[in-house]
């Protein structure tokens, strides 16, 4: 019974790692376990065998998703939603609100999307600067050289924005960054 429970908790831990703590996948497994616990079985072994059957199914499906890169596409579609929200909020601020808020939002969206692409491709970019991340992505062929060159001036703009150097850039530069980021997210997510 201990071994079965170890496998059960191991599966929960893997699901947490992949889908997050409150994911529907975990809820489903907990539900299966509760259902099995509520039914009378001849023995603990019979109950464990029933639970293991479900666990084997869940793990087989997980293996299939990993092998077919489906997890990455789930991750990508979630990321896209987040970035799209950021971009549209930034655009709202651009047309009727505060240029400072707008610029911070769009710079964060672009930098974060670069980090996410690196992360999805297995690059460790913790504590790396935006320029370093762009170089890493370029050298691995994850982004094209011409895109990397387009990103260079935006790295300088990002530094101005995040150093609250409000006087050193104008609205049109931020407008151009918004348009670029929108296309970039569309192409990479």
């Amino acid at each position: 019974h201990d071994e079965s429970m170890e496998i059960y908790y191991g599966t929960i831990s893997v699901l947490e790692n992949i889908y997050g703590k409150n994911s529907s996948h975990i809820k489903e497994l907990l539900l299966i376990n509760n259902k099995i616990l509520s039914i009378k079985y001849k023995s603990i072994e019979a109950r464990d065998a029933q639970l293991l059957t479900s666990i084997i199914g869940i793990l087989s499906n997980l293996k299939y998703e990993i092998e077919n890169d489906l997890l990455v596409s789930i991750e990508k579609s979630i990321s896209k939603e987040i970035f799209t929200d950021f971009i549209s909020f930034s655009k709202e601020q651009y047309s009727s609100g505060d240029l400072k808020i707008c610029s911070v939002l769009i710079c964060a969206a672009l930098e974060d999307s670069l980090k996410k692409i690196a992360d999805i491709n297995g690059l460790n970019v913790t504590k790396k600067s935006m320029a370093e991340i762009i170089n890493a992505l370029k050298s691995k062929g994850i982004i094209q050289k011409n895109i990397a060159s387009l990103l260079e001036p935006y790295t300088r703009l990002r530094n101005k924005v995040f150093h609250a150097d409000w006087e050193s850039f104008d609205k049109s530069e931020i407008g151009s960054l918004i348009a670029f980021t929108e296309e970039f997210v569309k192409d990479h997510f």
């Binding site: 496998i7 893997v14 065998a49 997980l62 293996k63 092998e67």
Partner: peptide
């Protein structure tokens, strides 16, 4: 990697199921 963990768990689950 996560795939290794999944495969390992799956094998353990199958072996344990056979035992029961």
């Amino acid at each position: 990697s996560i795939k290794k963990r999944v495969v390992h768990l799956q094998e353990n689950a199958k072996a344990q199921f056979e035992k029961l």
